[in-house]
Design a protein around this nucleic acid. Structure first.
Lengths: 144, 144
DNA sequence: GCTACGAAATCGTATAGTCCGATATCGTGA
DNA sequence: TCACGATATCGGACTATACGATTTCGTAGC
């Protein structure tokens, strides 16, 4: 089985991108009431545990550079979802935290996420899910 | 145990986005000589089997709308990587095909993809990979 | 204490990605 | 022939992304 040139679509990494796109669209569609972009949703989801994070930490979690986050955080701040404070002990760092309104939105997002996960992955065998996690963890660490 | 608010990062879908981002960056970094963006790489990779595709088909494979692809294909055409022809039997459709130069680039991309996959996934148990595939296929089909 | 160096975030700027609505072209069935 | 749906592009608007430069700050050396 020479694999290449068959259905053209055997590459796991291409499948990865398709899956990401599909789930992202489903999520934003479901959360259309919040009027947030995918990046904003991602940022809020990563803050949903209530712990503050610096811009760099958020960038690492979301996979974007701090430069990119600046404008995203600008909008989230303007709309009252987050605050930017100074971190005790290092006044260079900016501590991004949820406002009460932001926490509400973040909770909605986490719920929609959990919901989508249940619907999509609910019927799958646990071994598959476990393998999925294993591979994702490895992929997230590929050196660039 | 209300689960919510724990390490913030248990969500498979957030992990999915991180993995996508990391692999995408690794890939574009490795292919920097080709001077292509992520979208262009994606389009070429999906054409690498040599079969022509319509814009709609490409969009479905790459997870983008036809509108989005227009400008991507514009650049690829201007740079001699693809041609846009009419499809026999339906002159509304545009048949996107690789030029010889585009085929070369596409082959390079497929190689880099396979390489990255080997390096990242080589040491993992086959069951994990299988589970990964299973879950990806399901996720790619979530209704939006 | 002062100074030099490195780190964190932002700003300015440029380019690409993305999509919505509108339009042009074409196939198809009545 | 004509109305309707499908296919792709265009126009315009906004977001995403990043590189380089800048500002502000912490820290190690002296």
């Amino acid at each position: 089985m020479t694999s290449i040139s068959s259905p053209a679509e055997d590459s796991p990494l291409l499948a990865l991108q398709r899956a990401t796109h599909a789930t992202l669209q489903a999520l934003t569609a479901e959360l259309v009431d919040l009027d947030l972009t995918a990046s904003e949703i991602n940022a809020l989801a990563n803050l949903a545990d209530g712990k503050g994070r610096t811009v760099s930490q958020l960038g690492a979690a979301a996979g974007t550079r701090p430069t990119t986050l600046t404008s995203v955080l600008d909008r989230l701040e303007r709309r009252g979802h987050i605050t930017r404070g100074t971190r005790a002990g290092d006044r260079r760092s900016v501590l991004v935290e949820l406002t009460p309104a932001g926490r509400l939105a973040a909770d909605t997002i986490r719920e929609a996420l959990a919901d989508l996960e249940r619907r999509a992955l609910g019927g799958l065998p646990p071994e598959a899910i476990a393998g999925f996690h294993t591979v994702l963890d490895v992929l997230a660490k590929v050196p660039s």
